[in-house]
Amino acid sequence: MARVLSVLGTLLRGLVQCACIVMLTFLLCRVMPGDVVDVLGLEGGLTAEQQAQMRHDLGLDQPLAVQFGDWVTHAVAGDFGRSIRFDRPVMDMLATAVPVTLRLTVLSFAFGLTLALVLALAATARPSRLFDVLIDGVNIWSIAVPTFCAGVIAILVFSIWLGWLPVIGGLLAPVLIIGLDNAGQIVKQLREELKEAVTLPHVRTARAKGLSPWRVSVFHVMPATMGVVLALSGLVLGSLVAGSLTMEVLFALPGLGSLTLNAIHGRDYPVILAAVTLISVSLVLINTTMDVLHRLVDPRLA
């Protein structure tokens, strides 16, 4: 019962977070200098009357609260409105963009987490100078080299100088770059945690019982590190968003990031709102899942 309540509490907090983010985004979209009509007006040379008419048609002359209420009622029903610039349902645009981003982020996440885990495990099992240097290197790389710089370097080296990869379209380069970046962010802490976990008192007890090394690691060390792995995964997911944003722009991938950025430049708020809502809801959902998983692994938290 207590366990169910605490999971519900976590979910509820996540929902409140989502609601606040959506409200904040809505507000920011409306206070931003220059609206979509201005942008269209500049491009299409509309008269002031035409612009006013357009604002009226789009409901932009209504009070903010009314507009927001309108949007929410539709959004809850799954209708995010139509793009003002492209006059297409936002849902359709999301439907084409999301798979691209999903592929990119899931692959990057898998690669990054695997790389970090492999490096950290190797360094714990066989402490050596080589692994330390590798771990430090990956860590410093992720801090010092922003993903878009790594992308530019990759294009320059592999695609132009060596002629290996097609400059655009391929997922391999962005996945490797984001994955490496993610791995660098967590690998050091992961290694420290693993190092500490093998010296935990209950792990010593397990060894004192004479259990085999694999049994000690699987049943006694691993549960102790699950909490950290989950927390670090949550951290990585946040940085995935930023990473995929720049990678999509640089490698011209038609994903959620490109869509959001184009919408921002074009002041196309139905699209901005829908994209940010989607991103924040999925982040909160993922974090909640991590939280629940952690509670399942560690009986003390329930």
């Binding site: 935990l200 008192p201 209950h202 010593r204 007890t205 397990a206 060894r207 004192a208 019982k209 004479g210 259990l211 049994r215 049943f219 006694h220 549960p223 102790a224 692994v297 560690d298 009986p299 003390r300």
Partner: peptide
């Protein structure tokens, strides 16, 4: 090969020396 058969040990702080992730029965069964 000797630990847990010919000799065994109990430690100072039982709270942290028992695994928090496994039932008491599971740990004794090991």
């Amino acid at each position: 090969a000797l630990r847990g058969r010919r000799m065994s040990m109990v430690f100072q702080d039982p709270m942290s020396c028992l695994s928090p992730f496994m039932t008491v029965g599971g740990q004794i069964a090991e």
